[in-house]
Design a protein around this nucleic acid. Structure first.
Lengths: 176, 176
DNA sequence: TTCCGGTGTTTGATGTATCAAACAAAAGTT
DNA sequence: AACTTTTGTTTGATACATCAAACACCGGAA
């Protein structure tokens, strides 16, 4: 039932926030060699208290490890998750800027909102697509060229994209 | 600062859940001519109590209106929001199935998770892209053809997509 | 007219994410 | 060694989304 699809949103293993806690650890360890709660807090602009709570939950869930000095590092599971999210971010950003020609900062924001929600499968396929789109195959080059020129005009009837319910800029019907 | 981008996720005007409450109203009014709390509850699989609370918040925020018999309909603002989300869903789904060749049901789920987060700008540009991709321009046809055949092999070095940090299927470096 | 079922609302609970403030412990300074 | 600062933890609060259960109302059936 379609009715049940919408609940999948909350069934994600980790929240947007938790994912960013992990990414902060990744970033800080890479940059500084270590990540303490206070560093993560400063990085994410959250209080130490909040960070402390969240990190311990992430330890319980086995995404994070803590050493004797309360320095954090990602577990294998955590590393994998961060890697997959970072890769999706990278590819999404590239798609948004290169293909959709969004400004850098909107691309950044859109990618950040979506990166942790996109399925692995979609991420991989998007990578393949980008590989072809950006390749120097003549068809790809011609496509890029042609797309640059292209202006979409919704044909009102028989719109191949939107099922006769085009809601965008030049929208012509109410949502039915 | 990049540090602040991540918080934009929670700064969305309405939550995923609220958006789906509105879409339920839209759907039910379209299908049955009316939408009462109990109908919405059944449709979304939530209790009447929960629905009641959320709907009143949506009325306060001016997305929804209630008549004397407690039948709900979307306000202008609500209609606009639902339209924009439905259009993004439609286009995303089409992109996922047609371009990325994801199975129908994954496409559905991915689209549903993302639809309310994607910026209007990205949605519109994606529509334009789909317009070109699916057009019968010869370059588009050739591109589709070529893409069908294409196999992406990450060249390990100088990967044009992933900045030498390819995280997907054939990943070759750790996230650094 | 009384009673029952369907509907909407309210209340108390859970779980999540966050804060500020109080507290404790460790580290650095004098 | 004594004092100060930094850091981590705990606690009580808010806000959200949800539930179950209690309550209230309304309208039709007996």
């Amino acid at each position: 039932m379609i009715k049940e699809v919408w609940k999948k949103f909350d069934e994600t293993e980790l929240s947007h926030s938790s994912v960013h806690h992990l990414m902060a650890v990744h970033h800080l360890v890479k940059e500084n060699g270590y990540a303490r709660a206070v560093d993560i807090g400063r990085y994410l602009n959250l209080t130490r208290g909040s960070i402390s709570v969240t990190l311990h939950k992430l330890i319980d869930k086995d995404y994070l490890e803590e050493d004797e000095n309360k320095f954090y590092r990602l577990s294998e599971k955590g590393k994998q998750l961060v890697c997959s999210v970072l890769s999706k971010r990278q590819i999404l950003k590239q798609f948004f800027t290169t293909v959709l020609r969004l400004p850098e900062d909107s691309a950044e924001i859109d990618a950040c909102k979506i990166e942790h929600l996109l399925s692995q499968q979609a991420g991989e396929q998007l990578l393949v697509f980008m590989g072809y789109f950006l390749s120097d195959n003549p068809e790809a080059a011609a496509f890029r060229e042609g797309f640059q020129q292209f202006q979409y005009n919704c044909p009102m009837e028989n719109c191949l994209i939107c099922d006769n319910t085009c809601y965008f800029a030049n929208s012509h019907t109410d949502c039915e």
